[in-house]
Amino acid sequence: MSPMTFWESVLVLLAGVFAGGINVVVGSGTLVTFPVLLAVGYPPIVANVSNTLGLIPGSITGAIGYRAELADQGDRLLRFGAASLLGGVLGAVLLLKLPAAAFEGIVPALIVVALVLVVLQPRLSRALAARRTTTAPAHGGPLLWFGVFLTGVYGGYFGAAQGIILLGLMGILMTESLQRLNAVKNVLAALVNAVSGIIFVVVADVAWLPVLLIAVGSTVGGFIGAKVGRRLSPTLLRGIIVVVGLAAIAKIVLG
């Protein structure tokens, strides 16, 4: 393909800012940058790989912005981080080995399930808390670990709305504030993007100019998203999650 024009580069940069911010607050930033890369002429696999690499700095700055909410969650990060890393590796391998249509068909269904979990999380958490005993798993048990692993697979393959899915799963299976869960989500997303990105650099075709532009934009967006997201009430945060999730479904289904 021909090199990007100046205005196409500006568009990619701005998409990176928005994606970095929305990833920190909710997730689904890929649904901003990925279509933009397609629009300026990059093939789908190259666009997906380059997008994943470009969003890594934004995930890192978002996690740094939420460092206060990460206090005393070291054990949780180690537990779920291992699941995310393993899942991210498998997802990246699948992206390079399987046709895109094999996975993209279930993306809308995954997002719908995640949105339902997020909306019902307060009620279901109360119901589950009433039935829990003192021996209940502190970190959601094997079911949540496996769910985080599968989300990592999805994130390594495509990544759109992996944050929504993580928030839904953790919100249902753990008793914890949404902001602290959001902080964990940002770290896990950064790990998935990083490990899959390393694999892509070694074995896949990468368009480095879009990577640089998205990286710069997502870094700025990550700081902005952390400042905004930490001030949102749980109710408003859930509302944003639902709106972004519905937009993600519409983007995928309608193109």
Rank of each mutant, 00 (worst) to 15 (best):
P3M: 13
L11F: 12
V12A: 09
L14E: 04
L14C: 10
A15T: 10
V17L: 10
V17M: 11
G21V: 13
N23W: 01
N23L: 12
V24W: 03
V25E: 02
G27E: 05
L31D: 01
V32P: 01
L37P: 02
L38N: 08
A39S: 13
V40Q: 01
G41E: 11
I45K: 14
V46D: 07
S50R: 06
T52V: 08
L55A: 15
L55D: 02
I56Q: 02
I56V: 15
P57M: 14
I60A: 05
I60G: 00
T61I: 12
G62R: 02
A63V: 06
I64W: 12
G65D: 04
Q73K: 13
G74N: 04
D75L: 11
D75Q: 12
L77Y: 09
F80S: 04
G81F: 10
G81S: 09
A82V: 14
A83G: 13
A83Q: 05
L85S: 08
G87H: 02
L96H: 07
L98V: 15
P99T: 14
F103S: 09
E104K: 14
V107A: 05
P108R: 06
V112Y: 04
V112W: 08
L117H: 02
V119H: 01
Q121T: 09
L124W: 14
S125I: 01
L128Y: 04
L128V: 06
A129C: 02
A129I: 03
A129Q: 11
R132V: 04
T133C: 06
A138P: 00
L144W: 05
V148N: 03
F149N: 08
T151K: 02
T151H: 05
Y154D: 12
G155V: 03
G156T: 12
A161R: 00
L167S: 08
M170L: 15
G171R: 05
V184I: 15
V184G: 01
K185T: 05
L188E: 04
A189G: 10
A189H: 00
A190M: 14
S196T: 06
I198G: 07
I198C: 12
F200E: 03
V202L: 14
V206K: 09
A215L: 09
V216L: 15
V216I: 15
I224G: 00
K227I: 12
R231M: 14
L236E: 00
L236Y: 09
I240C: 08
I240G: 00
G245K: 01
L246Y: 07
A248M: 06
A248T: 15
A248R: 00
A248V: 04
A250F: 12
G255D: 07
